[in-house]
Computed example of a mutant assay.
Amino acid sequence: MADWVQNLMDSLGYLGILLLMIVENLFPPIPSELIMPSAGFAAARGDMNIFVVIAVGTLGSVVGTLPLYYIGRAFGEERLVAWADKHGKWLTLRGEDIRKADDWFDRHGTKAVLFGRMVPGIRSLLSLPAGMSEMPMPKFLLYSAIGSGLWASALAGAGYLLGENYDQVEQYVGPASKVILGVVVVAAVLWFLKRKREQGAKA
């Protein structure tokens, strides 16, 4: 994977970074933890400018969030509420739960998008609730850009400083992202079990 990413950037330059960062948001097996450090290493070699690398990486990351945002927006809260009321019983999911989650995102969505863009494993997924809660596009783009810019700067800077050892960034961040994703899954399972117990107590 590392050789393929590096070869693509060598042949397409900044356009390669842009395309890879767009695709990374839709296909997580191509991780930003490999793309941006590799680009930072290219800058350290003098093949690219580190500031342009960060700017292009940020732009690609923000553009890559838009498909899931629009899918969430097209699906919408009301459709999801109606689906949950009709079919969500087997998931112990009610329309009321969807509305509560949407209310939470309305209150904390800016922080979720800002900091979530720097959390591997859930970076891309946050675009769906942002779209479903109809977060205004300018606000979504602004906070996505800030979070993505900080993330791209950290990764590219690490690759720049590590030089030929840039792939070590992915070796450390990769396992961390799996841990974070695991925590999210465990939290979802615990919520599911809690809802089951509550429904059992009411029955």
Rank of each mutant, 00 (worst) to 15 (best):
Ser127Cys: 06
Asp85Tyr: 05
Arg117Asp: 12
Ala39His: 01
Tyr143Cys: 04
Val184Thr: 08
Leu181Asn: 05
Leu142Asp: 07
Leu161Asn: 08
Ile71Thr: 11
Ala203Ile: 08
Arg117Leu: 06
Leu162Lys: 02
Val184Pro: 09
Leu190Ile: 12
Met132Ala: 14
Met137Gln: 09
Phe75Trp: 15
Ser144His: 03
Leu142Cys: 07
Pro31Asn: 08
Leu8Gln: 13
Pro138Trp: 13
Gln199Val: 03
Trp4Asp: 11
Thr65Trp: 02
Lys111Leu: 14
Trp4His: 09
Leu114Lys: 09
Ile122Ala: 07
Leu161Gly: 11
Gln171Asp: 13
Tyr69Pro: 10
Leu150Thr: 01
Ile35Thr: 01
Leu193Glu: 14
Ile22Trp: 07
Arg107Asp: 14
Phe51Gly: 01
Arg73Asn: 11
Leu20Gly: 01
Asp10Val: 02
Tyr14Gln: 00
Asp167Leu: 07
Ala82Thr: 14
Ile17Trp: 00
Val173Met: 08
Leu26Pro: 11
Ile98Ser: 08
Leu114Asp: 12
Val183Ser: 11
Glu78Asp: 15
Leu19His: 02
Tyr172Trp: 15
Asp10Ser: 11
Leu126Asp: 10
Thr58Ala: 00
Ala42Ile: 08
Gly76Pro: 12
Ser153Lys: 01
Gly57Val: 00
Tyr160Ile: 04
Lys139Gly: 09
Arg117Phe: 11
Gly121Tyr: 12
Gly163Arg: 04
Gly174Lys: 01
Ser124Glu: 10
Gly76Met: 10
Leu66Pro: 07
Lys111Gln: 12
Ile98Ala: 07
Ser148Asn: 02
Met132Asn: 08
Tyr70Val: 04
Tyr166Asp: 11
Tyr70His: 07
Leu155Asn: 02
Leu19Pro: 05
Leu19Glu: 03
Ala43Asn: 09
Thr110Tyr: 09
Leu128Arg: 04
Ser61Glu: 08
Trp104Cys: 01
Leu26Ser: 08
Ser148Met: 01
Met21Lys: 01
Leu91Ile: 05
Leu193Pro: 03
Phe140Asp: 12
Val53Tyr: 02
Pro67Phe: 06
Gly76Lys: 09
Leu19Met: 14
Ser133Gln: 08
Gln171Leu: 12
Ile35His: 00
Gly147Ile: 04
Tyr70Lys: 03
Leu190Val: 15
Val56Ile: 15
Leu20Cys: 02
Ser38His: 03
Gly72Cys: 06
Met9Ala: 07
His87Met: 06
Glu77Gln: 13
Leu193Trp: 12
Ser11His: 11
Met118Arg: 07
Tyr166Arg: 04
Ser144Trp: 03
Pro67Lys: 03
Phe51Met: 11
Ala43Val: 02
Lys86Asn: 14
Leu93Val: 07
Phe51Val: 08
Ala2Trp: 12
Lys196Asp: 09
Gly64Asn: 10
Arg94Gln: 14
Ser127Arg: 07
Phe115Tyr: 15
Asn25Tyr: 11
Pro138Glu: 10
Leu128Met: 13
Gly64Glu: 11
Thr110Gly: 04
Glu198Met: 06
Ala145Pro: 00
Pro120Ala: 08
Val183Lys: 02
Ala84Thr: 09
Ser38Pro: 05
Pro138Phe: 10
Asp106Asn: 09
